[in-house]
Amino acid sequence: MKIAVTSEGSTLEAAVDPRFGRCKYFIVVDTDTGAFEAVDNVQNLNAAQGAGIQSAETVVNQGAEAVLTGHCGPKAFRTLSTGEVKIYVGVEGTVREAVEAFKAGKLQASENADVEGHW
């Protein structure tokens, strides 16, 4: 399956970006093959409003079934849930470590947004 990890850089060694809507990159990883692609999120990083919503649309359009990130606000959460994407918050370390933790079943999907909406 495909999963998206919010990232501060474009490689698997980059740190997980704690922000969802305004993260620098999404690293979209195929957990079966290990192949990955970095998706630049600069447009949403600088959005006036609704960065979380638009980032959520990006993730869904990439075909990801799960998102690993630091925090996720209510609007992004709703959009991701509607797009049938599972959300894992509180993820830290590098992208590679996050993916490994996910594959090992160490992460637990969130039921709700964990932060207030930001602008």
Binding site: A47, Q49, G50, A51, I53, Q54, A56, E57, V60, N61, K75, R78, T79, L80, T82, G83, E84
Partner: peptide, 17 residues
């Protein structure tokens, strides 16, 4: 204004935006 999103052919609205 990102007040309306469409994912997997489903529409989500955010009236406050």
């Amino acid at each position: 204004y990102a007040a309306i999103a469409c994912v997997k052919k489903k529409v989500v609205t955010f009236p406050e935006l």
